[in-house]
């Protein structure tokens, strides 16, 4: 066990992948000389050289499309997009090409590309750097979407993502980079399943990425008030691990989704729809969700805090499900 940050865990994952497979390279804005906008790739240029740690011009469309081409050509590229907001410039190669090509070529081509991007708010980066659009991407067939919330997943999800024959998007919640903790070297990381991060009896809190820590904090506070909350970390946003979700909800009979995305048409909406489809007769209360306010993310600290899911709102919603509000 060693004490490291989420950022360092991501870097370890990158370093291991680069060392393990010569076809792997990293490219993106400022990933080389500057060490990455969020310093994730710091030091890798010196270690692996310019061929494998490549700075790109400020053109998401250009370098994401180049990553698709490199993947088609036999490489295993990792492309860093600074934030998910900027990935909208690259939607065409991501959706119209990478996600569709296996289907359109009758299985002849696949795009083994991994795109890392920062998502989420909490750092006063305002309305063009702070949104959580992973729920949008989770709408697209042909993609696999990962949301590491723990140090183990931050380090361990990259390698299996590179082994996947198709496009994988890896969302790093920006507020997590400085989160520090003990890395459990023994944990086996897969990119298929959701995990129960805390066992409970009375309701299920479903979270991922940046909201996992808040859900766990809420569960701790609820425990102090005699409510036993189970906390599930989704980990994989597409395809969703329905079995783990339903097993938990069938046990607790109440579900609360905590999602940093906007409420309407959100991942939270999809999860609740599935719960109602699959576990309706086991429910003891209407499923509920705590999402971000449907506004562009404000810059001012107090407004940003107010727009995001926070522990008191999660606790209040949980108690509402139990008729304790």
């Amino acid at each position: 066990m060693s004490r490291i940050t989420y950022r360092e865990a991501l870097r370890q994952g990158l370093r291991e992948a680069l060392a393990r497979d010569p076809r792997v390279f990293l490219m993106g804005e400022d990933v080389g000389r500057y060490g990455g906008t969020f310093a994730v790739s710091k030091g890798l240029l010196d270690e692996f050289g310019e061929q494998r740690i490549r700075d790109t011009p400020l053109s998401e469309l250009g370098f994401v499309a180049a990553g698709v081409g490199a993947a088609l050509g036999g490489m295993r590229p990792i492309v860093e997009v600074m934030t998910v907001n900027f990935s909208l410039l690259a939607l065409d190669p991501l959706m119209n090409t990478a996600a569709a090509l296996r289907h359109m070529s009758g299985g002849q081509f696949s795009v083994p590309l991994v795109v890392r991007m920062t998502t989420g708010a909490g750092r006063q980066l305002a309305a063009q750097h702070s949104h959580s659009l992973e729920g949008w991407f989770a709408h697209i067939p042909g993609l696999k979407i990962l949301a590491p919330a723990t140090l183990e997943d931050a380090r361990g999800m990259l390698w299996p993502a590179l082994q996947d024959p198709d496009l994988v998007l890896l969302f790093e919640q920006g507020a997590l980079y400085n989160q520090e903790g003990e890395l459990d070297e023994s944990e086996v990381v897969d990119i298929r399943s959701a995990r129960v991060r805390r066992e409970g009896r009375d309701l299920t809190l479903i979270a991922y990425g940046g909201t996992l820590g808040k859900a766990l904090a809420a569960a701790e506070q609820l425990a102090g008030e005699g409510v036993s909350a189970e906390v599930i970390d989704l980990r994989v946003l597409r395809p969703l691990d329905d079995a783990t979700l339903m097993a938990s909800v069938r046990k607790t009979r109440r579900a609360l989704v905590v999602d940093e995305g906007w409420r309407s048409g959100s991942l939270a909406a999809e999860i609740i729809a599935r719960i109602v489809e699959q576990a309706f007769y086991d429910l003891d209360a209407p499923p509920a969700r705590v999402c971000s306010a449907e506004v562009p993310m404000p810059y001012a600290k107090h407004l940003e805090d107010a727009a995001l899911p926070q522990v008191p709102a999660i606790v209040a919603a949980a108690k509402g499900l139990l008729g304790l509000a």
């Binding site: 209360a285 209407p286 139990l322 008729g323």
Partner: peptide
């Protein structure tokens, strides 16, 4: 008479 949210009758 229920003890759940909005007076709903629950399993318990």
């Amino acid at each position: 008479s229920g003890t759940g949210p909005q007076g709903a009758v629950t399993l318990a």
